[in-house]
């Protein structure tokens, strides 16, 4: 309001006062202060946030390997339970994709594998964990980590009632989604009204199992450094 160009020759006289820099000093100062504040928040919280994500995966692992009832007996912290995180690099069609995997052992004996996989769902990306037995021949469970499927329909993929269908399925044949009651050993019932979400999850599981076939052995896995 107080700074108008009226009566002032453009250019040199009063140039600085009307320059963009002088006009925007408040924005620049605020941006610096806010930037520093955000950096401080990030420094303080990033570890907690990363741990939250990691913990969510780790908490689910016993249940995925042994099933909910058995897992309750082994509940962590259990010194005999060892979860070794690592990654498997899979080269396919000229692209390399990385699967985070966890080798789970109890008292030194291998108990199974948990693989993190993801893919496109109906609404957004779906991320899930797949539990496999030590020979990677049978699925021992799946758990949906991240999904934004339609509430009331597609988001039922996260309910145990639906995802428990995957338990004890063989990894020899790709799983197929059927509407209505599934009949064969390798079929999964589609959720009513959410066939696409059901197919997405099954597709993610099939692809991960196919990609990792023969690769779930210590030679193919690059184990990450342990964190205390």
């Amino acid at each position: 309001m107080e700074q108008t160009l009226k009566g002032r020759p453009p250019g040199l006289a009063g140039g600085f006062k009307n320059s963009n820099l002088a006009q925007a000093w408040l924005i620049l100062v605020l941006a610096l202060i806010f930037g520093a504040a955000l950096a401080a928040v990030q420094v303080n919280l990033s570890q907690t946030i990363r741990n939250n994500k990691l913990k969510e995966s780790l908490d689910r692992i016993p249940e995925l390997v042994w099933g909910a009832d058995e897992a309750a007996k082994i509940q962590s912290p259990n010194p005999a339970l060892d979860i070794a995180p690592g990654t498997v690099a899979v080269q396919k069609d000229g692209n390399t994709s990385y699967y985070p995997v966890y080798r789970v052992s109890l008292a030194g004996r291998p108990a199974g594998w948990v693989v993190k996989a993801g893919g496109q769902g109906y609404a957004d990306k779906i991320e899930l964990l797949i539990g496999l037995d030590p020979a990677a021949a049978t699925i021992t469970g799946i758990y949906i980590l991240e999904q934004k499927e339609t509430p009331g329909l597609g988001n039922k993929i996260a309910l145990p009632r639906w995802r428990n269908q995957f338990n004890q399925k063989s990894t020899a044949l790709p799983l197929t989604v059927v509407k209505g009651k599934s009949s064969t050993a390798s079929s999964i019932d589609a959720l009513t009204g959410a066939t696409i979400s059901s197919r997405s999850v099954t597709g993610i599981v099939n692809r991960a199992i196919d990609d990792l076939k023969g690769r779930l052995n210590p030679a193919s896995i690059r184990f990450s450094e342990r964190q205390p």
Binding site: F34, A37, L38, V41, Q42, L45, T48, I49, N52, K53, E56
Partner: peptide, 15 residues
């Protein structure tokens, strides 16, 4: 700025 702070706080304490 404040929205980002709230977003980070939620991710850290109400994951």
């Amino acid at each position: 700025t404040f929205v980002t702070v709230v977003d980070r706080l939620l991710a850290a304490y109400l994951y």
